[in-house]
Design a protein around this nucleic acid. Sequence first.
RNA 1: GCGCCGGUAGCUCAGUGGAUAGAGCGUCGGCCUCCGGAGCCGAAGGUCGCAGGUUCGAAUCCUGUCCGGCGCGCCA
Length: 554
Amino acid sequence: MSSLRADLRAAVEAARDSAEAEGEFRRQDGAAWPPISLERPGRPEHGDYATNAAMQLAPVVRDSPMRIAETLKRHLGLPPGIGEVSIAPPGFLNMRLDATWVAGQVGAILEAGPTFGGVRADHPRKINVEFVSANPTGPLTVGNARGAFVGDLLCRVLEGVGHEVTREYYFNDFNAQVLNLGLSVQARREGRPVPEDGYHGDYVAELAAAVPDEIWAEATAEGADVGSILGRWASEGVRAGIEESLARLGVNFDVWTSEGSIHEQGWVTRAIDQLRAAGHIYEADGATWFRSTAFGDDKDRVVIRSNGQPTYFASDLGYIAQKFSRGFEELIYLWGEDHHGTVARNRAAAQALGFDADAVQWMLMAWVRFVRNGVEIGMSKRSGEFISLDELLAEIGPDAARWYFGSRATTTGIDLDIELAKKQSAENPVYYVQYAHARCSSILRRAADDKLAPDTGEAAQLLVHPAEQALVRRLLAMPDVVADAAERRETHELTHYCLEVAQLFNAFYRDCRVLPDEAAEIPLSQARLTLTAAARQVLANALGLLGISAPDSM
RNA sequence: GCGCCGGUAGCUCAGUGGAUAGAGCGUCGGCCUCCGGAGCCGAAGGUCGCAGGUUCGAAUCCUGUCCGGCGCGCCA
């Protein structure tokens, strides 16, 4: 499926080149052409698409925007679908779709079916997206919810434009936190108070009660490392619980990678050896350092502590190499913004290890502050004071939760009043969109009862009503919305698009009677049924990308 | 102190340097002879934190400043 906007951009570029070839545009020496941008004007009288190319070109060809616009218009070979091009001061080129062409596209949407809205990426890539990656020392909190939803949504959108995506969860299975978890379980089991820096949540008591006899015997044997043994057992149980929670959200990871496995498979030592051979490693103060400042970091980083233990960052080194070895062309890390301080050293590592740093992207998600009745709720697994993801879901449901987190830019901090969220979940716009979808389904059901079916043929030409036209035009924009989301790695525009389509459908429903009152209305009715089916398809596809259900009745 | 991210309607948030700054929720006022009223129509509500600058044009870019979040470990 091609994108109309991409075709228009190409047409404007061609007009520019044609004008230059005929000597009407004379570029300043060595000046590059500015990129052509196409936008959707805010006002209907400005058409369906507009470009500011003439203004952008003005300093390059040294002419007035209005004259440049005239020249561009003269050279413009329009793709099918554009009915009219006009010029507006100070030099906008406004393009309007041809109504007949628009009406005819409804059939094309239906024929594309579930694939409508996807655009084939210019270069499909094998992409690894790592997200959530919360350490398995306690259940997922609502704080982890954003990462889970946003990460999964990003994956769906990348898949939607043809990339091959692997969802990956990275977890820690042998550090001090896991040890503390083990000691906390032990304390609970023995009826002693949990250590000060241990884990105090109720789930620890549940774990303690569930320790199998053979594990307990092994852990408490003479000379055994109680904390490690219990910690490993407990963290695997917690990890499995996390996997179940995520599955309930519809977030399913393809690969679970433990930090321990990266070490066991030798990735860390090999990476450090490679860096040493390249001269990026030195010893100081008894520790082993990576000269990350040579690659733009603000200080060098320890990889092996003076006590011989590798740092967490050492694992990062090995993990990057491990990921690339698996054939990924692009790595995306979706991290909480509290990790932004570690981005520079990781980028340095990727470069120093010989990888294309541009092939690795670190996305930082702003924090979610949780508030109950105006008081902030801490999200500390250690103190046991947190709201679990499962609790949130039980209150507001996965569709509303996905919509809530999916409709915000990742850089925007969110203040979520948990009580307000519960109250407002009933008013969540997601239901408005789902309702529109159900309404489409209902109309199509009734039509089928009357032996009426959509007609993608000539009848579609009857769709000339403003409400019909506005709806089709918006439906046709879905490939552009999806392509933008994939390219910018920001997916929240999808929810706005869903709302717009639902609103336009409701306006169409209000103004245009779909089912016929008498036989003479049947051709128009069939055309409107086709539009209804197309709207339903687009809503289903967009909701599908969001991971939200599209009910036929509610 | 230094760095990163924010500050837009009562609230929660959109807004790739463009044309008269938007949506949802909330508030107020209307609409059920009619395909789903979880709907529709209308209204009120804004010094885009503040001050300079760049530009034909700034919520958007630059500088400064105030406020908030986060980060600056041989923690993860």
